[in-house]
Every structure is written in C-alpha cells, then in structure tokens.
Simulated scan of single mutants.
Amino acid sequence: MRLSLVAVIGAVEDELLREFAAHYTKLGVGEFFVGFHFPDHVPEEERERTLGTWRRLAGPPALVSTGPWHEHLHGELRDRLRAAAGEGWHLIADSDEFHAYPLSLEETVARAEATGHPLVNGVLLDRLAADGGLAGAGDAPDLDTRYPVGGFLTARLTRGNPRKVVLARSDVPLALGSHYSPTVRIDVDEVRDIPVVHHFKWRPPVLDDLRRRIEMHRSGAWTEVTDTLPEEAERYLDHLLAHGGRVDGGALGIAFRPVSLARVPDWWEAEARQILRERMTSAPRG
C-alpha cells in the first residue's frame, strides 16, 4: 500500500517537529510531503532553523512559501502537496495533529476500500496540561507527559469544527481546513473504529498566535473565507481570562480525562460518534 503524509506547517517549535516526524514514522508512513509557510513576522533566522530541523529529520521540504496567512492559503498549499504526492492514499495532518488508529493504517485503508469509502474521518481530541494550562510538566521529554489529559475543547469551547479527514484517496477533493470533502457523504452510523486526532494546539505559543490571528483578520491584512476564525480565537482567550489562564472543564461541561497516544480510550468510539453526529447535522456534510 502506498501511503503519503501531506502536511502544511508554519513556524513551530523544533521539539514539536521532532515528535511529529517520529510519531508518523512509527505509525508506518512511507513518504512525507511537507510544505512550510512563514508569515512575514517570522524572522529569517527562525525560518532557517525550522527548515534545518526538518531537513535533518526527513529531508528537504516539498515546498516553502512566505507572506500573509490568508485563510484560503492552507488549502491551496495542501492541494499542491497532494498533487506532488500523486496517486494512492494520503494521510492528512497538521503539525499539532497526531493520529491514533484503533486498527493499523493498512487495516483502516483496507476497510475503507472494502466499504467503498474514499476517505476516513477522525475527531479532534484536544490535549492539555494536567491543570488545564498551556505549560506542560516541566522538562518532560514527550507530548504525552506534558499534556496528559484530553477532551473535546474544540467542539465545546471554541465551537470550531472538530471533524478532520485523516485519510483520503488522492482523487477526493478536500474542503478548507481538511474538515470534510465537498463531494463525499459519510453516514455516521456506518462509521466504525473512528481515529483519534490528538490535538496538541494548546501549547504556550498559541496565545500570541491567536492574538495575531484576531488582529490580522479583523484588519483585513489576512483574508478570511469562513468569517469564524477571530470568533473562535476570542472564545478561547476570553475563557482563559475568566478562569485564571486555564481551561476549566467543569465550567464547560467537559470531562478532561487521562489519555495517551499509545491507546485509544474505551469511551472514545461512542463519544466521538456523538461529536460527529452533532457536527454533521449543523455543517456541510462529508
């Protein structure tokens, strides 16, 4: 089976890049088609450091671009990378998204093909520090230790789209953000063994990123397509301000529970299916 990873990455920490490459190599990905985009505020030395780290991990990136982070740009770069990856199945992931599959990758793709499904949907499980904060456990060497609990923060707090296409056949188009395909409808009740998308977005750099996103989109310097990005960012920042800089699961009705990249929780299937069902009745279907 030919399986290529496709990812669009910005200016992120070297530690995240290292764990990203290691995670997907261990998962069985054969080829990486990774593109980097750096907004104008990222210093040249930071760009070169990030690109140098990736070259040491997985070789030269498939593309590099700079300039405003317009909302439509992610999808355009992703599609260029998919074209470069060619025919076969594509694993789609952002740098803060670490997939975990109830079955192996080969079994997951084989089941999709056998049932006539040209894509596989996963659901975001947002990872947090044990106290709900942004800073993990000291100098712990891995993401699981730094961010040991997970819950549906995207779905319940920011009200973003928690559904992500994790695997797609090369001929299947994907919508903005890879949340669904505009040409494929999947019946939620037919879906089995839903992949976990461990979402390590809520790290210390996210605060500056979200504030910049609000400023740049509201000013028009970065163009929007969905008209939702600043609102989602503000919901998160307002919650932190009201709760001492931490996410309060109790205030949101979210149970943040211990989770790990190594094991899909027993409760995952039923709760992820409910998240999919809620989203697919209130948004474009895919």
Results as ranks from 00 to 15, higher is better:
residue 147 Y to V: 00
residue 258 P to G: 05
residue 96 D to L: 09
residue 179 H to A: 08
residue 179 H to G: 02
residue 263 R to Y: 12
residue 265 P to E: 10
residue 242 A to I: 12
residue 24 Y to A: 00
residue 39 P to T: 07
residue 76 E to C: 00
residue 237 L to G: 01
residue 150 G to P: 15
residue 243 H to V: 08
residue 239 H to Q: 07
residue 166 V to P: 02
residue 147 Y to N: 01
residue 118 P to I: 15
residue 93 A to N: 00
residue 215 E to V: 04
residue 41 H to P: 07
residue 171 D to E: 10
residue 237 L to F: 14
residue 105 L to Q: 05
residue 275 I to C: 12
residue 159 R to Q: 07
residue 262 A to V: 11
residue 224 E to F: 00
residue 208 D to P: 03
residue 41 H to K: 06
residue 42 V to Y: 10
residue 73 L to E: 00
residue 58 A to M: 08
residue 107 E to V: 08
residue 273 R to L: 14
residue 185 R to L: 12
residue 205 P to D: 10
residue 9 I to E: 03
residue 167 L to I: 08
residue 87 E to T: 11
residue 167 L to C: 02
residue 46 E to V: 13
residue 51 L to W: 07
residue 286 G to R: 10
residue 270 A to R: 14
residue 40 D to W: 07
residue 173 P to L: 13
residue 162 P to V: 08
residue 85 A to R: 05
residue 152 F to N: 02
residue 269 E to D: 13
residue 1 M to K: 04
residue 211 R to T: 04
residue 199 H to R: 03
residue 241 L to T: 12
residue 200 F to I: 03
residue 123 V to W: 14
residue 133 G to C: 13
residue 49 R to F: 11
residue 119 L to S: 05
residue 163 R to H: 09
residue 89 W to A: 03
residue 25 T to H: 06
residue 269 E to R: 08
residue 14 D to V: 15
residue 279 R to W: 13
residue 136 G to R: 13
residue 243 H to D: 05
residue 32 F to H: 08
residue 45 E to D: 15
residue 1 M to R: 06
residue 104 S to N: 10
residue 168 A to H: 12
residue 284 P to R: 11
residue 100 A to C: 11
residue 40 D to H: 10
residue 121 N to K: 06
residue 8 V to W: 05
residue 88 G to P: 07
residue 179 H to C: 04
residue 23 H to I: 09
residue 180 Y to M: 09
residue 118 P to L: 15
residue 99 H to A: 10
residue 153 L to C: 09
residue 63 L to R: 00
residue 96 D to P: 02
residue 47 R to S: 01
residue 198 H to C: 04
residue 241 L to P: 01
residue 201 K to V: 12
residue 234 E to K: 05
residue 133 G to Q: 10
residue 103 L to K: 11
residue 44 E to F: 06
residue 38 F to Q: 04
residue 17 L to N: 03
residue 16 L to G: 02
residue 24 Y to M: 04
residue 15 E to L: 02
residue 177 G to I: 11
residue 197 V to Y: 09
residue 66 T to A: 13
residue 203 R to T: 12
residue 190 E to I: 00
residue 209 D to P: 00
residue 21 A to D: 05
residue 286 G to V: 11
residue 160 G to Y: 04
residue 9 I to W: 04
residue 32 F to V: 01
residue 108 T to M: 10
residue 73 L to I: 04
residue 66 T to R: 15
residue 127 R to L: 14
residue 274 Q to S: 13
residue 10 G to N: 03
residue 119 L to K: 03
residue 202 W to H: 12
residue 169 R to L: 13
residue 151 G to W: 07
residue 212 R to A: 11
residue 226 T to P: 05
residue 3 L to D: 00
residue 261 L to T: 00
residue 186 I to Y: 01
residue 47 R to P: 04
residue 90 H to F: 09
residue 161 N to V: 06
residue 122 G to N: 07
residue 128 L to H: 13
residue 144 D to F: 08
residue 55 R to L: 04
residue 268 W to F: 14
residue 76 E to M: 03
residue 224 E to Q: 03
residue 143 L to K: 04
residue 272 A to H: 15
residue 5 L to T: 01
residue 233 A to Y: 09
residue 14 D to P: 06
residue 115 T to G: 00
